[in-house]
């Protein structure tokens, strides 16, 4: 909740903050100015979460072992 920069939040943290915001508003103890600020932040959190969800792409790679210096390379993995 202390991180003001939403883009640095993980999906989980952003969702949790959104939930907390909603709950606080639903308790009805927030004044108008804070309500609007909460709404703005809540919307930004939602967009951030949606972006995180959109980022999800399936990409499967296979680790190639065997280089003599112990480093590994990857190559696309094809399921048989």
């Amino acid at each position: 909740m202390t991180t003001n920069n939403i883009s640095e939040l993980s999906f989980e943290a952003a969702l949790q903050e959104l939930e907390t915001l909603v709950r606080k508003l639903e308790e009805g103890k927030v004044n108008l100015e804070d309500s609007i600020a909460s709404y703005e932040r809540g919307t930004a959190l939602k967009l951030h979460c949606e972006e995180k969800l959109r980022e999800a792409r399936m990409r499967v790679e296979k680790i190639m072992v065997g280089t003599p210096d112990g480093t590994h390379t990857t190559q696309p993995f094809e399921t048989s």
Partner: peptide, 19 residues
């Protein structure tokens, strides 16, 4: 998750409207 997120966002909206 998307549904959950949407649900919370609409609750947020409702709250502000109500207020």
């Amino acid at each position: 998750l998307a549904k959950h997120l949407q649900h919370h966002h609409s609750r947020l909206q409702d709250q502000l409207d109500q207020k």
